[in-house]
Amino acid sequence: MRRTPGVTRWAKWAWKATGVLPGAAAADWRELRRDGDVTEFHAATRDVWLYVSDTEAYAHELGAACPSVYVVLRKPVDRTDVPFEVVQITMSPYEAQDYCDSAEEVVEKVAMPPALIGWVRDFVQAHHVEEPFVKRRRNKSRTDLKEDGIGDARISQTTDVYRAPRRSGQVSG
């Protein structure tokens, strides 16, 4: 995570996930380097899991111009000394999109390191099965022949089923 000075008076700092470190040791917001007001931290070490059911998403991500890893961040509930908690790291753009639907998480897109690209590519080649597209077919029942709920049942004629009934002695104009 990179911390830079905020650009507005309402935010003292701006935070951005800038990279992932494959094979890194455990860390909890360890400072890596400082250059003036800009500081980079190793926020957390998380395991990354690949699932056979998500190979389509991984293949989609590998086909992007710049394959990415998605870092899911959330404001911590029980800590005040850190700005974010690293909830998850995922290779699936579909899963990352699901996290974006909530206002509780922040999802950062980070360039996938070459070592991870090779690992994900090998996994996709070993487990991905292309599923053919099957167009959904409509059933043949005719729903346009029924007229349930049309008009008022108190009107006996079939010429104007949408007409409202009149009281006796009422003159139409």
Rank of each mutant, 00 (worst) to 15 (best):
residue 3 R to N: 04
residue 3 R to Q: 14
residue 7 V to H: 08
residue 8 T to I: 05
residue 9 R to Y: 04
residue 11 A to H: 11
residue 12 K to P: 00
residue 13 W to Y: 15
residue 13 W to Q: 08
residue 15 W to P: 08
residue 17 A to D: 05
residue 17 A to Q: 03
residue 19 G to P: 05
residue 21 L to F: 05
residue 23 G to L: 07
residue 23 G to V: 08
residue 24 A to W: 05
residue 25 A to P: 00
residue 25 A to V: 06
residue 27 A to W: 02
residue 29 W to V: 05
residue 29 W to Y: 15
residue 30 R to Q: 10
residue 32 L to D: 10
residue 34 R to A: 09
residue 34 R to I: 01
residue 34 R to M: 00
residue 35 D to R: 10
residue 37 D to M: 09
residue 37 D to V: 02
residue 39 T to H: 05
residue 41 F to A: 04
residue 41 F to Q: 02
residue 47 D to G: 05
residue 47 D to I: 07
residue 48 V to W: 04
residue 49 W to E: 14
residue 49 W to G: 06
residue 53 S to W: 11
residue 53 S to G: 02
residue 55 T to E: 10
residue 56 E to F: 07
residue 60 H to M: 04
residue 61 E to W: 00
residue 63 G to K: 08
residue 64 A to E: 14
residue 66 C to V: 13
residue 66 C to K: 08
residue 67 P to K: 02
residue 76 P to E: 04
residue 78 D to W: 07
residue 80 T to M: 11
residue 82 V to A: 11
residue 82 V to K: 12
residue 85 E to G: 01
residue 89 I to Y: 00
residue 90 T to D: 00
residue 91 M to T: 08
residue 95 E to Q: 13
residue 105 E to A: 12
residue 110 V to F: 10
residue 111 A to H: 04
residue 112 M to A: 05
residue 112 M to N: 02
residue 112 M to S: 03
residue 115 A to P: 00
residue 116 L to A: 10
residue 117 I to H: 13
residue 117 I to S: 03
residue 123 F to M: 09
residue 124 V to F: 01
residue 124 V to H: 05
residue 127 H to C: 07
residue 129 V to S: 13
residue 130 E to Q: 14
residue 130 E to C: 06
residue 130 E to G: 01
residue 131 E to D: 07
residue 132 P to Q: 09
residue 133 F to V: 14
residue 135 K to H: 13
residue 138 R to W: 11
residue 140 K to A: 12
residue 144 D to I: 01
residue 146 K to Y: 14
residue 147 E to A: 12
residue 148 D to G: 10
residue 153 A to L: 14
residue 153 A to W: 09
residue 154 R to S: 15
residue 154 R to D: 13
residue 155 I to H: 03
residue 155 I to T: 09
residue 155 I to N: 15
residue 158 T to G: 07
residue 160 D to F: 09
residue 162 Y to S: 12
residue 162 Y to M: 10
residue 165 P to K: 11
residue 168 S to A: 08
residue 168 S to C: 02
residue 169 G to W: 06
residue 170 Q to F: 09
residue 173 G to V: 04
